[in-house]
Design a protein around this nucleic acid. Structure first.
Lengths: 199, 199
DNA sequence: CGGTTTTTAAACTAATTGGTCGGTTTTTTG
DNA sequence: CAAAAAACCGACCAATTAGTTTAAAAACCG
């Protein structure tokens, strides 16, 4: 009796998508339930039916967003064979024409800011970072096995590369005037090469 | 008649300081005028007398904060002679016991998030980045002159080092579980060494 | 001191918004 | 088909808060 799985499997992604959109537009605090409901094509009452509180809604949006970006990264990497090119494959993040460009960075900054003061979100961020580090580590280990790389501690190297991606991303997004796509991509590629290269 | 300069020169820094404190605590959106007024030791009416709108108050807090951190960085660097040590001197940012530790990072994330959607704040961020890049560039040029470094384009190198500082800082602050002070400092030092070293 | 101006406090206003609630429509199920 | 459950709606409530107003207090000056 009861739950209509078919409609839920449509409504929930629909609402989450709308929430991501509104958050990117206005920020988390200013993202109102009315706005999300409207964007998702239902009423506030309807929205509340699926996500009883704003907190639930935001959490779903954050996690859904993270999962999607992570999947994209993984897929792109998995289509590449060369370990160095795998490590450099995340430069798709530095593309101002990507459909996720604005939404993605806005979400990311919002989440970081919340995480800077909220333990629960810090955990979510921690898991996100861990995911990327694992991905990078696997490529480094592959390169070491092949004899292409020389890396003492793949985990440390992966953390460093991941942090570089983030630092370059912040500058590239927030100060486009001085940080071109080229700059972002070349900077990351050079630093990765240094980190994994034979001494 | 008229403006009492003496009291203004006390009140304004007092209010700005209180605003930074409250923003770090609650975030910009949740920083209420009442809370700032209370922390600064006057009433909301008094606060409004000095800063007619919340926007004015926040802007003063942001600029005041940026100026203070920048001054600290400059002063520490200027007490060092060796160009490489100058470049590495900003690792004081990776100190969890620093009195500005929590406030500083919180402010920084808040500002970045606003800048990600607001042209005016993007300009402020741009100037901030420029300031650091200039500082770093000067040290690089000094090293090149001395014959310690080999750098084709000091400006580019400075931008890269600056971005690395930021990426490492984000990870170090948001995911302390996996990113120790040691890690942050050593990572930055190694990467700087690579960037300026003779090939 | 007396009067004038500046500064402060606190009550108030208007707008926003998360969440509630009573009810209606739609779907499922026995 | 009927009854029960789920999905959905939108008016309403209560809390919050930026900014205004008003009146008292403090500072200043001749």
């Amino acid at each position: 009796m009861g739950v209509n799985k078919a409609i839920q499997s449509i409504r929930i992604p629909q609402i989450v998508e709308a929430a991501v959109e509104i958050i990117a537009e206005k920020g988390i605090k200013e993202a109102t339930l009315d706005a999300v409901a409207k964007k998702a094509g239902l009423s506030k009452g309807g929205l509340i039916h699926y996500f009883p509180t704003k907190k639930d809604l935001i959490e779903a949006a954050v996690k859904g967003f993270f999962a999607r970006i992570f999947e994209r990264g993984k897929e792109i990497r998995d289509n590449i064979d060369d370990p160095y090119e795998q490590l450099a494959s995340f430069t798709w993040l530095y593309d101002r024409n990507d459909p996720d460009y604005f939404r993605g960075y806005r979400m990311f900054f919002e989440i970081m800011t919340i995480a800077s003061a909220d333990e629960e979100y810090r955990q979510i961020f921690h898991q996100w970072v861990n995911g990327w580090v694992e991905l990078l580590k696997a490529s480094i280990e592959k390169g070491v096995e092949r004899g292409d790389f020389e890396v003492e501690n793949p985990e440390e190297a992966a953390k460093t590369i991941s942090a570089i991606y983030q630092g370059v991303a912040s500058r590239w997004f927030l100060d486009p005037e001085n940080h071109s796509d080229e700059w972002a991509r070349e900077t990351v590629r050079n630093l990765i090469k240094f980190i994994v290269s034979k001494k």
